[in-house]
Design a protein around this nucleic acid. Structure first.
Lengths: 306, 306
DNA sequence: CGTGATTACGTTTATCGTAATTATA
DNA sequence: TATAATTACGATAAACGTAATCACG
């Protein structure tokens, strides 16, 4: 039994049982593919394919069972070059993180500082995009992981790990009436012009759902994609900003007060997303341990493999 | 990257870095092995071995990581012929069950009857031995599974699954004074001559531990390896028998009464044991579903793989 | 006849062992 | 000088493509 035979088996299945197609994909001639399949079948002593007339039509149960093992095995083999590369690069190497601008700006810097201090030779790249973009980058291998909230629908190619809850806070200028309240209500918020994220943000949809659920129509004065912008307008007294709590820094944002709103709105969960069936480089593991220390490596591996 | 290269890598490690030894095991010449390792290293672009002078001494971290993957992969590949054989045999095939004589006699027949009815063409063989024998048979591939109690120490080669509790019962002739008691005590038992299993049985050691823990010295009149023998003597009124509850059948053993003793002695647990990293044939799975319907196939697979 | 699988056959390439070589203790 | 790894080289086998053939629509 050779790897070529197994690759052949899998490729023929992927080519919907067209040997010519599979041959092209494998950089082989059609007779070559035919031979390999025949060899494999005769070596295993069991037919793998059902042939109608002179065409391959589908797998036998044996073929299905064996193709499953073959696929798993080939996938695993493909990680070997990745392992080698990881070690070849020593403490260098690269790490591409895909994340939303907000998290790149607020959640990541503290972690990145520590990571870079510990792994100075790793070239880190932070790609910014919306939830669906970052997810596509990871699926396509353009990024090792993404850090994103957003309603990432279940995807068999990706493994998601919840990391932290992002809850909304209300930002208002220092002596704004709301800052005097012990506990603000949705009605209180609706009394003021509101500044928040653009409609395409999950955060926006999240808070709007809550308002509408309470049959309220908030006055969205301004929406933006960048919390810094919102803070400027809020500081100027044009309205109150509803932003992710991570966007507020007590010392940096002196002119603003943060008012807890976690009792009003649902929190969203920040997820780390990895592509399944990939080799976890040492740098990726190191980064995960810094960014999401609660994740157990073994659990991550299991989720990646399953 | 070829399978031969990976096999070579693993074999050289197993041969404690002696290429000549590994070559013999691989049915290759020594230069062949040398070549393969060199090819692998140059192909992966990373040294796998640490060489002192002109000897291989140990693995590099990269070598270790890659050898781990290689071993997993090779093991998985080896299951392919097993899968093929399983399907080649269709509804025939064979199943070797290793178990203790007692379980072969009392626990198994009911299950076997159903199994054979459903899988009439499977050749089943029941091998009888003590706990350590059955465990060795399974480890050595001479049996597919064992069914055994006994103090099977944790073994990385085996996966154990608890199946049922075996609790001791006291068997006494119909009008024996003990049968009148509502709840027997250890003292009550010590007042009679006792018939039980031989000392090498875990069951024997188990009940003796209990007696000794209560500072009692029971009068072991007779010990045997076969509960049928014990029942004969108990029926004759020579003593009371302490046996596994599974050895007693209300209708077959008319002359005897079973007296619950589960409050006196520890129960032992009947385990099914499988070798790790093997392919689970369809017949083995079918048998497991009959014998231990509480086991979820996925859990079994996971335990086998981990 | 066109598409797709198989068979036949010859060339190329890779595989692998023997023997010679180098290196270390 | 014995043991172990590497290099050199030639014989053998396998891998693979081209071309011819077969099978079906």
């Amino acid at each position: 039994m050779t790897l070529r035979q197994l690759r052949c088996l899998c490729e023929v299945i992927d080519a919907r049982f067209n040997l010519s197609l599979a041959a092209r994909a494998l950089h082989l001639s059609q007779p070559g593919v035919s031979r390999y399949l025949k060899m494999l079948e005769s070596e295993l002593g069991v037919p793998l394919f059902v042939k109608a007339k002179n065409r391959f039509t589908r797998l036998t149960p044996a073929g299905q069972a064996i193709a499953d093992v073959a696929r798993r095995t080939l996938r695993e083999l493909e990680t070997i070059p990745a392992v080698a590369r990881d070690h070849r690069e020593g403490d260098a190497g690269s790490l591409v993180i895909a994340t939303n601008p907000g998290h790149a700006r607020y959640s990541l810097p503290a972690v990145m500082e520590r990571f870079i201090k510990r792994h100075p030779r790793v070239r880190v790249r932070i790609r910014q995009g919306d939830s669906s973009q970052v997810s596509e980058w990871v699926q396509g291998g353009e990024a090792e992981l993404f850090i994103s909230t957003g309603p990432t629908e279940p995807n068999p190619e990706l493994a998601l790990f919840p990391c932290q809850a992002i809850h909304p806070v209300v930002l208002a200028p220092a002596r704004h009436p709301l800052t005097l309240k012990r506990r603000v209500t949705l009605h209180d918020l609706c009394a003021c012009p509101i500044i928040t994220y653009d409609t395409e943000f999950a955060f926006h949809r999240n808070i709007m759902r809550t308002f509408h659920g309470a049959r309220l129509r908030p006055d969205i004065l301004l929406s933006a994609s960048d919390a810094e912008i919102m803070k400027i307008y809020a500081r100027a007294g044009l309205g109150i900003a509803i932003v992710a709590h991570s966007a507020y820094d007590k010392t940096l944002d002196r002119g603003l007060r943060a008012i807890d709103a976690s009792h009003l709105f649902n929190s969203t969960v920040l997820h780390v997303g990895l592509r399944r069936n990939v080799y976890l480089t040492r740098h990726l593991i190191a980064f995960l341990q810094l960014f999401a220390p609660h994740l157990k490596l073994e659990d991550v591996r299991r989720a990646i493999a399953g």
